[in-house]
Design a binder for these strands. Sequence first.
DNA 1: TCTGGGGTCCTAGGACCC
DNA 2: TCTGGGGTCCTAGGACCC
Length: 413
Amino acid sequence: MTVFALADCNNFFVSCERLFRPALEGRPVVVLSGNDGCVISRSEEAKALGLGMGVPFFEVRALCAERGVEALSANHELYADLSRRVSAVLRRHAPVVEGYSIDESFLTLPADGTQEARARALREEVRRWTGITVSVGLGPTKALAKLASDRAKKAGGVLSLLDPGVRERLLAELPVEQVWGIARRSADRLAAHGARTAAEFAALDDAVLRKTLGVGGLRLARELRGQSCLTLAESAPERRSVTVSRTFGRPVGALAALEAAVASFAARAAERARRHGLKAGSVSVFVGWREDGRAVSDAADARLPPTADGAALIRAAKSLAERCFVEGRSYRKAGVVLGALEPDDSPQAELFDDGRPERARRLMKAVDRLNAALGAGALRFASEKVSRSWTPQASRRSPSWTTRWEDLPGVRA
DNA sequence: TCTGGGGTCCTAGGACCC
DNA sequence: TCTGGGGTCCTAGGACCC
């Protein structure tokens, strides 16, 4: 028998920033999303000031200035690298580690009474080796482990919900919308059946659960009862789609600029697909703008012979952008989604194959190698460069301390 | 007047997650 | 004036097939 554990990095993005700027320790710090739009990570001091998760930065800018809050633009390159390092340590402690998000991993531990000691040891090693603090939740199911990790932060870093009595007390007082997988819509529907706490939710009749929230809801309720329904993914599931999208730094009204943005997104998406050894059989482009104060969007998509060739995907994306484009609209964001992904290992001969796919494959391989050696973006398609007027703002970005030679921190004795 | 039963595949949209 | 970016799964309904 095994138990589930969830290791969750505390205030992850802020913690990453502090690693290389210890002066931020003990001070209120927030990390902002693209265009410095929203608050997406907060230090404990920032939370104490009442800065909420996901609030628009412009609403709290004055408060931040007044209270000396350090606001930083997100540096995902740095966070991704540190996330990999944390996972590497976790893998030393558990045979199966399922990366759930950039800052959370599920793992299993043997149910032999040593779980809490193991969890503490793991937490200590992650801290010592990476500088990141994790909270660990233990439970007989994934949903309960997740719930335990939420509470672990205030309980010394490790919390177990393996004891049924402890579990019952917690679920009885927990508002149902704090359960993993239950948000407002579902909470409203559950309230109609008189279930407002996690315990009341778990106690609902199976048929009612199925009818109200579908199979997912039923599974979740069973998980809260201690009956394990969700298994640990032994290996990462095949990726279904790749999206690259951005809110523009300033509105885009010209087709040429929109096409340049979309070309750039398609190139990045193609790179990501190649990194996963995949090719795409469909491309979709979406654009967003504002009308009477509300956000509206449009999209167009197309099938194409599966490919990971940047040039082919750029061509497709640009023609879709043209299809979406309407003169006079002031676009605020756009994105490219690659779908119908499949492994790129079987060079399935195309009908009327003239050797071009193979040449494109070799070209892309060379581009990827050069960009890996010289730094991302060293080599780009000309169509990306026509206009960069759409580039998002990120004026408060920290250096990529661990992934770019030119950003390597220096140490003075 | 009465209009089957069972299946597949695809897509759009809803809901949720971090 | 200013609200991110990247994902997943499920469901309902339409088209189509025998």
